[in-house]
Simulated scan of single mutants.
Amino acid sequence: MTPPLMALVALFSLIWSSAFVAGKIALVTLDPYTLLVIRFGLAAALMAPFCPWRRIDRRALRVGAMLGLLNNALYLGLTFSALQRLRPEIVVVVVSCAPFLTTLLAVALGQERLAPRRIVGIACGIGGVAVMTGLVGAARPDPLGLALAGAGTLAFAVGTVLFRDKAVGLPVFQLNFWQTLVGGVALLPAAWLLGAPVGSVTVPTILAVLHLALVVTIGGMALWLALIRAHGAGTAASFHLLNPVFGVALAHLAFATPLRPEDFAGAALIALGLGLAVMTRAPARSG
């Protein structure tokens, strides 16, 4: 990777991982569905004045709506539900399995081919993920929480591959706006039926919601869509292998979570896997 790309990948991973730490803070007073509806509603309202309403790209609207259902409603609805049962760093680590699922889907759809070094890199990354989550240790995480996080990660992988296939040349800002708006609207019934009464709103909750709406939804998602367009679904998904490193570090800073030897061992495996996976560009299938 070139230095500018390395900087973008690090920034993306930091932003993406911070979402689950901020989410854990906000979930003290908000249920996951209400939190996401507020997050997406605020972000969409802030983006709306900058949308070219006289030149709406209808294809961008359709693709954005599809991504809103997969990336925002399903992926974040499920993973934020998992946050109620799991530590944020574990949810971050499970989401980091996205490269494996995305690569399999991209290969199955004929978008990319697997290179041997890339397979080894993803295997190293998944091994690091297993070490950091405690799946290979004595303390087992909540099974339902892991299932929710895993299902959300699968929805995210599907959205990643479909974006690469359908959204070439579409305006990233409009895509982000429509997927944010549709994701919030899609989660309204869940917030209405499954949501809990809002507790006392604290300053940390307000700051967490603002961070989720401004930094993650507007900035982080736009950066993510741009990385997919530039580097392909499988390669862009491999950037998530850095997320456990940032997730553990941010959880330590925010919640005083102890740093374990397994965290450092897993981080080393993930860094090795990221290098192998990204240094080997997956060729697209011809014809």
Rank of each mutant, 00 (worst) to 15 (best):
A123Q: 11
G134T: 02
L148I: 08
G125L: 03
Q111N: 06
L101F: 10
G121N: 05
Q111A: 12
G128Q: 10
A149P: 15
V91I: 13
R117P: 02
R87H: 15
C97D: 02
G121Y: 06
C124N: 01
A108Y: 06
R118W: 07
A115L: 11
G128T: 11
V94Q: 00
D142R: 08
T102K: 01
P143E: 00
T102L: 01
A106H: 07
V107F: 08
P143F: 00
C97K: 02
G134I: 10
F100G: 14
V131T: 12
A139P: 00
V92R: 01
A115Q: 11
P99E: 08
A106E: 01
A115G: 12
G128I: 11
P143Q: 00
I122P: 05
V136F: 14
L101E: 03
E112C: 04
I119K: 12
P141M: 00
L148E: 04
M132H: 12
G121I: 05
L114C: 02
G127F: 06
V131Q: 07
V120L: 01
L135N: 08
A123Y: 08
A98C: 12
R113S: 08
V136N: 09
I122W: 03
G134W: 04
L148C: 04
V95E: 05
R117G: 10
V92S: 10
A151R: 09
G128L: 14
L144S: 12
G128P: 10
V136C: 08
R117N: 13
A106S: 07
V129T: 14
E112D: 04
G145D: 00
P143I: 09
R118V: 10
R117S: 11
A106M: 01
T103L: 10
A147S: 13
G127P: 06
G127Q: 08
V107D: 01
V129S: 14
F100P: 05
G127S: 12
I126W: 00
V93I: 15
V129R: 11
P99F: 06
G134Y: 00
A151C: 15
C124I: 10
R117K: 12
C124M: 09
L114A: 07
G128S: 15
R113A: 12
V136Y: 02
I122C: 06
P88S: 10
R85V: 14
V92Q: 04
R85I: 11
R87P: 15
E89I: 09
I119G: 15
C124W: 06
V93C: 12
L86M: 13
V129C: 15
T103N: 03
I122K: 05
V93E: 09
V120R: 05
L114E: 01
V94R: 03
I119W: 08
I119V: 15
I126H: 01
L114K: 00
A138P: 03
